[in-house]
């Protein structure tokens, strides 16, 4: 695969972003820490009672995952925007959508995937029944990429702004509603031993839709906001 082909260029971007993330470990740790902290605040704020935690758990886990993703989104294009490599990508002959997709994939691998590592621990803290854990992990595997993909559009729209942070959450959070609904509902249904294939199919469909459309929209947004 030569670096001249679109796929080769995308792989190069992916490799570079992963390398950068591994060298600056801070970015890897921050979302995980945030995720753990938010989840552990809930029992303190609400009640440590097992039955209550069991009822709230799926929603709390999903809201926390959503916020952790939102927090990490800002780093998606920020450093590339500041050092000018984003503009290089814009003028490169490779399709921008592919490069953006590679960046989103890299971002998810370093911020979304690590959340899965601590999820079993947090599920225990929230008294989630063991048999619901596989479903929880599946929803996160299907859902968090959607969050990264949709979030990328919002980041692309605000990357050129000096104070884009608050605006970003306003742009992105309403679009996260369906993922939140199906994700947390699948988990609570699984905890109640109700079949959840429908919800998982919905999450899969949303992932497919986001995977096809979001990189195009994010690329268009980048061209506009860096114009």
């Amino acid at each position: 695969m030569s670096a001249g082909s679109p796929l080769g260029a995308a792989m190069a971007v992916l490799q570079r972003d992963l390398l950068l993330a591994i060298r600056t470990r801070r970015e890897l740790v921050n979302p995980i820490l945030f995720f753990v902290l938010v989840v552990s605040l809930f029992p303190l704020g609400v009640s440590p009672e097992q039955s209550l935690l069991r009822a709230l758990g799926p929603g709390v886990l999903w809201v926390a995952a959503l916020l952790a993703t939102l927090l990490s989104l800002d780093g998606l294009f920020r450093s590339d925007f500041e050092d000018g490599s984003l503009e290089q990508m814009l003028i490169s002959p490779q399709p921008l959508g592919m490069l953006v997709l590679a960046k989103i994939l890299a971002h998810w691998l370093v911020t979304g995937l690590p959340l899965l590592l601590v999820t079993p621990l947090l599920a225990t803290l929230l008294a989630l029944p063991d048999h619901a854990l596989p479903v929880l992990l599946t929803t996160l595997v299907l859902g968090t990429p959607v969050l990264s993909l949709v979030g990328a559009i919002g980041v692309a729209l605000t990357v050129g702004l000096r104070r884009g942070g608050a605006l970003l959450s306003l742009l992105v959070l309403p679009l996260y509603v369906p993922v939140l609904i199906f994700g947390s509902n699948a988990v609570s249904s699984a905890a109640a031993e109700i079949p959840v294939t429908g919800q998982l199919y919905m999450l899969g469909a949303m992932l497919a839709l986001a995977l096809t459309l979001a990189p195009i929209a994010a690329a268009a947004a980048l061209r506009i906001s860096l114009h």
Binding site: V150, I153, L157, P174, A217, I224
Partner: peptide, 13 residues
């Protein structure tokens, strides 16, 4: 133009 992109994303959503 930026708002136009967001509006279109919203329509899909």
């Amino acid at each position: 133009r930026a708002a136009a992109v967001l509006a279109l994303v919203g329509v899909v959503n």
